[in-house]
Design a protein around this nucleic acid. Structure first.
Length: 177
DNA sequence: CCAGACGTTGTT
DNA sequence: GTCTGG
DNA sequence: CCAGACGTTGTT
DNA sequence: GTCTGG
């Protein structure tokens, strides 16, 4: 799965590598990004053809939700069901995003103890998780809440020894899709 | 028809 | 909004 | 994912 | 032990 991660590359490197403009303040480095925190993601706006790095809250709230209380359960979306699940399928069609990271954490069980491991990118700079995003309008305030989730899949060779699930990592040639 | 869910992981 | 379970 | 709570009544 | 909040 993916419940914690880090990103600490300088903002200038994010801008170059993702060809994105920064919306709002430059993101601060994070070594322990956690669910329900507001974290930088890259989105493509088909109207303006612009790619932007914007702060969204981790934990997806579908637009039809009565309230945002289910967000913490929606931090990951299984790749196997992302086209079918009511909570994710419309975002999968129209609202994909990139979640920049430098490392992610998985916990390994050893005799009942949980040992955290960091799986880091190689030295080319930040990579990207495959994400989905949504907007939810608070009926009380009229404010829009923007949220995202990280897609997960079966672990690859680098991760399998630690854990059986991991975030989907998109290679750079998929960042424009 | 209406009411209620809509999610993932890990552990037994 | 849309599907599932009753 | 981890950390921390795990409760009710009445009043603003 | 299990749920909630971050």
């Amino acid at each position: 799965m993916c419940g914690r991660f880090a990103f600490h590359s300088p903002a200038s490197l994010l801008v170059d590598r993702f060809a994105a403009t920064i919306h709002g303040d430059a993101p601060a480095p994070r070594y322990n990004a956690a669910p329900m925190q507001t974290l930088p993601v890259v989105r493509f706006n088909p109207e303006t053809k612009e790619r932007r790095l914007s702060p969204l809250r981790w934990g997806l709230v579908p637009v039809w939700s009565k309230d945002p209380s289910g967000a913490a359960k929606m931090i990951n979306a299984r790749a196997e069901g992302v086209t079918e699940r009511p909570a994710y399928r419309s975002a999968f069609k129209k609202r994909r995003c990139l979640v920049p990271f430098d490392a992610y954490y998985e916990w390994r069980k050893v005799d009942g103890a949980k040992i955290p491991h960091a799986i880091a990118t190689d030295s080319n700079g930040p990579d990207a998780f495959a994400g989905l995003w949504e907007g939810w309008k608070d009926p009380a305030s009229g404010e829009w809440l923007h949220t995202f989730t990280i897609i997960t899949t079966e672990a690859n060779d680098a991760t399998r020894a630690i854990h059986d699930r991991m975030p989907v990592i998109l290679p750079p040639d998929h960042w424009s899709a």
